[in-house]
Design a protein around this nucleic acid. Sequence first.
DNA 1: TTGTATGCGTTATCAA
DNA 2: TTGATAACGCATACAA
Lengths: 352, 352
Amino acid sequence: MKNGKATIHDIAEKLQVTASTVSRALNNNPRISDATKKKVLKAAKELNYQPNNIASALRSGKSRLIGVVVPTANRNFFSSVIRGIEEIANSVNYKVVISQSYDDYEKEMQTIEALLNVQVDGIIASIGKTTENVDHYKKILKKGIPLVLFDRVTNELDVSQVVIDDYYGAFQATEHLINEGCRRIVHFSNSQNINIYKERKRGYEDALLKHGIPVDLELIRFSKLQLEDGRTSMQEVIDAKIPFDAVFSASDYSIMGAMQVLKENGYKLPEDVKLVGFGDEPFTSFTEPTLTTVNQKSIPMGNITAETFFEILNQKDQKNVISKKTILKPELIIRNSSLKTQNHNSTIDLIA
Amino acid sequence: MKNGKATIHDIAEKLQVTASTVSRALNNNPRISDATKKKVLKAAKELNYQPNNIASALRSGKSRLIGVVVPTANRNFFSSVIRGIEEIANSVNYKVVISQSYDDYEKEMQTIEALLNVQVDGIIASIGKTTENVDHYKKILKKGIPLVLFDRVTNELDVSQVVIDDYYGAFQATEHLINEGCRRIVHFSNSQNINIYKERKRGYEDALLKHGIPVDLELIRFSKLQLEDGRTSMQEVIDAKIPFDAVFSASDYSIMGAMQVLKENGYKLPEDVKLVGFGDEPFTSFTEPTLTTVNQKSIPMGNITAETFFEILNQKDQKNVISKKTILKPELIIRNSSLKTQNHNSTIDLIA
DNA sequence: TTGTATGCGTTATCAA
DNA sequence: TTGATAACGCATACAA
């Protein structure tokens, strides 16, 4: 026992048994008597034994590490999903390695390569916005390594996925605006190659059609949906003198930009224009007016993603797993930016 | 060569040399000829050889993994520091394992335990708000494992630290308010057991004293500095009819709460009350008025923290490292919430 | 139920 | 400069 670290051999020596016996005792192997098992556990505690995961990983081929690839952890949605994944993973003694792709295709490939290099047992990922070629994900599957996608998924891959019903969320949001009396609803969307944005747009359109409102292509603006993009898109609509009475954005960030530009142009919110975002970022609750938005159920999504992952991991034949798609219902969080009658907690109310 | 994975033995066989030779070629060992080195590298590429980090870790005792402990990755500051750490780490072929303590003492201990279990080569950490006992960090040092702290540090540990000059940042912020004509500046602080908050308060006080303004304890309010706490503290000051003309908060979140309450109570910003926050969270640029705040230089902090870490890691004698403290100068970002004359880009301006 | 023997893939030591 | 051999700590097939 050198440099303070006890191994199974130290325990074995102390107890006058062999290392195999100790190993079995420590791993809930049935081929051991309760008596020795107890003794081993006791000795392990006394020697302050900490298993060497690396040796175990080398021998067993399991690192008890899950690689999680997200565009950025600095987003309420993603960090909450990670938290949801960790809850489940830690409960079965797995550890999560977080990797950020920064929505960059090159970085995404590198980071997956790096995760495979540290021998993760599997990967959970959300695909970056700029990623159009998914060969690096195919490589994971070809190696027989479990892969689960969440939120930003693709149909090009036959893997299990956990998503929210973007269509449903967008439909609810749009219908809510219609119920509040809006007829000319601007929609901010992103590239239609990205599934979630395609679905949100479809939900928006179907809600309009259901209520007999024609889809006006002039009202749909495409961008990267950052705050600045929201500013630009909004200003364009205003400058083109296109009539509108609401904005439903596929992102909380771009709706913020719209909110700024609208105020700068003298519009009263929500009287003149009603706003709904998507994502329920924390800041949406402290804008003025507070922002109606769609909550994506991030922690449950993380839980379910991890559970799906472990189901796959525990299957014998990695090549023949049946992929399943879990769809969560998002929730419309109604705040002041979309309401005819102001909620009494509104800051706007009280200032006026 | 089974299941598609080439090992150094496969390369050795192909080239009719031994595994040792291959290993040397792959690891820039000087005891090898250029000719064989070239051949090995070529063969490695042909066989698509990927080194097994786990085997290497077991043998060499180095996992090429750094554990990073942060309260939460879902904060602009922390996620940027992580990014800064990753930049450096990846450049020397190290991988970062991010662990969140959620500002919970128990979780912090568990997560460090878990990191040590996956055999990280060292730990970079920012101490949680509720952590008062640092024995779990002492344990890391006792094991001879490199440890570097950033931002939320402690004096109880003899380790290298990277911090910003909180005193300086607070001093600048307060002096700026004084220059803008404020005399009764409320200060929001947190527990004085946490170094950064103690320093910020000290900076606030010294700036006042320098300008001959007495420190009025009634103006200093302690809380957890969340948005809700800011609301409560602000309302308390108002209700107590304590005169004030500015608020300098040690956190962007609580200053948001103050901003809300002030507006609800009919104060005009920044005319009646000027505000300065701390942290430069992204949302501070889209409040109304836009918020003056202190930028903590997060990416450079991450870079320097990682560099410091590797300096220590590369030292022969882990027990005798000399700890050093790096102090970065924060930067005051002046926006509209603290200015007498409004900046022309101001949204307030344009609405009015 | 326990022990024996072996190997996971790499690196380090020693010898040639 | 290269090769042979052992060892890192653990888990498992096989034997007892």
